[in-house]
Amino acid sequence: MSDTHAIHLSGQPGHPEELSFHVTGDHHPANSTLLGFWLYLMSDCLIFACLFAVYGVLGRNYADGPTGAQVFELPVVALNTSLLLLSSITYGFSVLEMQRDRVRGTLIWLAITGLLGAGFIFLELREFAHLIAEHNGPQRSAFLSSFFTLVGTHGLHVTFGIIWLITLMVQVGQKGLIHENKRRLMCLSMFWHFLDVVWVGVFSFVYLMGVQP
């Protein structure tokens, strides 16, 4: 870590009590990884903004195909939304356990979060399979193309989030709650909550506004 270099240059190795971690003139941000990850999320935000704009432009071009009111099942979307919202709070509980350095609690809440995320993906894939089986796949109309692209990209993000979550569970299980793992857990926390924010846009802009005549 770059901090370590700064320490050894200024302090004397071998005399731990003289190590100073408050190097004067050090402008290294305290949590540059989290800031960098935040910048990544902001760039991800731009991807979703473009896809939302595409849906906003093409969302009403049905090409004689089905409309949003005909294909969207709001009860399923409501269930999906609850799953993702619940997974957000369970990840929050996992972070709280992590702050108290409890490995078991952290892992249990992470597992619950992963299961809720998997349930979300399952329901979404079922919806997609249902649409494609009725010949309402992405090639049917501009509306369905933009719908599949936007919702599919979000689903892909959640899928990778789950893979990341499992990886972190293995790492925490092997190494415990060391500082590096805490940092990784905080990055995934930001990623997971960010996906929930995007989903708020999806269920409002795509589903709830899409069923309006």
Partner: peptide, 25 residues
């Protein structure tokens, strides 16, 4: 004992509270 006195956890890792999460939820 981590030796990360200045890379402290308060910026991002340290200030989540149960109350905050519940209010948000």
């Amino acid at each position: 004992d981590h030796g990360h006195g200045h890379e402290h956890h308060d910026d991002g890792i340290g200030h989540s509270t149960f109350k905050g999460y519940m209010i948000g939820f």
